[in-house]
Simulated scan of single mutants.
Amino acid sequence: MAFKKAERTQLYLRCALFGPSGSGKTMTALLMAKGIADTMGVPFAVIDTEARSASKYSDRISFDVNDLGKKTVDDYITAMNEAIKAGYKVLVIDSLSHAWRELTDEVDRIAQNSASKNTFSPWAKVNPKQKQFIDAILNFPGHIIATMRSNTEWVIGERKDGKSVPEKVGLKPEQGKGIEFEFDLLMELDQKHQATVTKDRTGKFQDESIDKPGEAFGVALYDWLSSGTVVPVPETKPAKTGKAKTEPPKAVPAKTPLTEPPIAGSVKEKGKKIVDEIGVIITANSESGNPYFTEMEKGESRKIIESIHSDEAGIKDLEDLKTFLNDELSKRKAANEPKTAIPASVPAATQAA
């Protein structure tokens, strides 16, 4: 593929708001969505997992809502597919945290039923669901504003009159490690409804503090997003749920591990190649010489390999394990990079017409 002059294209917004309870995540998301939708002249929709909290503001803001009863990854993806079919171009997801809780609960269940009680092996089975969830968000053909709860703690602050007062502050978002890399705009809200822009691919608001961002801020974002070159609209296919592909592989006694010889040549060679690639991943070290994976994690990986059958299904399980470990290695490498490092470009899936 030849090089060509780079140009900025029109984009779909991928924005995430996070903060402690009471920081105004839902209202902020609704107002920003209203600003974008009104500018576009379209209605907007909300996927609500917060016990109909968004609907409490329906007397002030007009929107359509899907109140999720079940809050599994599959239900989120189904709701996003319904939004695509209905033609919504602006979507609020309030919030992403319940999907993450489903996955962590599943990991705990698998770990408790295992002999080792270690959660590393279950994550190799559950992580594909998280990947499908993120892919569904990135590939949505419209603007998405999502909220995330954050872990909180109380600290002692000082009021203007000098008196001490307890304040609730947010910590990291309740979602998967590295979730911040998936969004163009990341905003942290505090109890005073002040938003700090911690990540901004527009280059206009990085590190700014915005007092109660609302409709006007949504309009400003839309003006920037729509100012690039128009690109053709790709055909949008419904995002796949995890029902067919992400169920944990059935436990089968390991009669013929891939590490033993009596198997067909092509399958054996393919399996050995993947095992070798996994070995390279789990033994990777940082530039300072520190290993990215612990000895316990390496041991868990080897146990998984030894339990996999030497057949085509086993090859698929090995490939899934390699994908999981490779993704985990990428996250750990990124975590060791300087905090100023920002992804150089917006994923192609976020490009809009």
Rank of each mutant, 00 (worst) to 15 (best):
V280P: 08
E247L: 12
A86Y: 05
E300T: 01
M27R: 12
P343L: 03
K250Q: 13
A216F: 10
V233Y: 06
E208L: 09
T147A: 03
T198V: 15
G242T: 14
D94R: 01
Q130T: 15
T202R: 06
T78I: 15
T78H: 06
P261M: 03
E153W: 11
I278T: 00
D59C: 01
A335T: 00
G157V: 10
D108A: 09
L318C: 03
K85T: 09
K117R: 13
K5R: 07
I134L: 08
T39I: 02
V73L: 13
G203F: 02
P122Y: 03
M32E: 00
D223S: 14
D108T: 09
P43D: 02
E102F: 04
K272S: 12
D223C: 06
D317G: 06
I305H: 08
L225M: 12
I278D: 07
F3R: 15
P249T: 07
N285M: 04
A111T: 06
S209T: 14
R101E: 14
R109V: 10
E287L: 01
E287C: 00
K177S: 15
T78S: 13
F133C: 12
Q351E: 12
F44A: 03
L103W: 03
K268E: 10
L189W: 02
S121K: 10
A284M: 07
A83K: 07
T229L: 11
T26M: 01
A284P: 03
E295L: 06
L103M: 12
